[in-house]
Design a protein around this nucleic acid. Sequence first.
DNA 1: TATTGTTATACTCTATAACTATA
DNA 2: TATAGTTATAGAGTATAACAATA
Lengths: 165, 165
Amino acid sequence: MLNMNDQTVNNDLSAPDELLSPLLDYLARRLRAEAEADLHPFGLKIRHVVALTVLRDLGERAQSQMSEALGMDATGIVALLNDLESQNLIERRRAVQDRRRHNVVITGAGCRRLAEVEHTVAGLERRMFGLSGQETTALYQLLQKATAAAAGGPEEPVAGEDCAR
Amino acid sequence: MLNMNDQTVNNDLSAPDELLSPLLDYLARRLRAEAEADLHPFGLKIRHVVALTVLRDLGERAQSQMSEALGMDATGIVALLNDLESQNLIERRRAVQDRRRHNVVITGAGCRRLAEVEHTVAGLERRMFGLSGQETTALYQLLQKATAAAAGGPEEPVAGEDCAR
DNA sequence: TATTGTTATACTCTATAACTATA
DNA sequence: TATAGTTATAGAGTATAACAATA
């Protein structure tokens, strides 16, 4: 039972010198600062991009579900969605099954804006991180696995008016 | 000339679907929130860990250099170092060559505290990200390469009273 | 005059608590 | 009574501007 999972065992006696957190914290901070200039013409910030990405990839979601998916407090979601809705990038719809709920969907304009922004951000990442295509792919896959684990398992996408891609 | 660097060429016509920024933003936000509880007994936050790590790995640094290395405004460094100095984890020393400058070094107590914290953070990362040892190593190396590039080339370490490791 | 570090201040991001409406 | 969303408010985190000491 003890050695079931040998692959994941770290040696706890020596100081771990492969700590991800400092690097993640640094990169995210730098990213937010750098992206601000690039994203300003779009009237968006990184976390708006995160929210739009979730809505495109996962489909229609209640605000409470978005709060969970984004790892943000529900109250922060309100302001975030207000920003996006004022630009018609998302829509809030009263759920008929439960009229307390607002279901949130990305609009066609939101899909288009997101695609534009993604090109901008991809360019920024290339400039900033200087990774090859292979390295970027490898890093993406590892980060996505970590994200899925941190979010407590993968979310299943829901059919919606998908962005034509 | 156009295809010199084929490995790094992305197809700019299709929407890039391997964007790192949303994942980095999400993971860093979750990390800060989760680490708060674990690090509270140490009186530290993630960015303190980042600062201590830089001081241990890079050695003595002026505050202006720390500002650059951490990607933070110089004014933020002051408060950050005040926190650490009040716990005797770092020291500020007037530089004799240029008495305007404060050189910052990590203390023995800082080294010990950092080692303890690193174990705590490593445990948090294992719980949260659920990656194997190999994946963690791979992710670490990619993040470090990206960090070095974002910081504008690797910094050369400076000899100092190194933490006995 | 320019630079290092500091203080005071404001702005942004996120979290806590109280309120509305539905269930 | 409990839940989804909202508002108001406070608390971190970070940046901007003005100041002191030194170059």
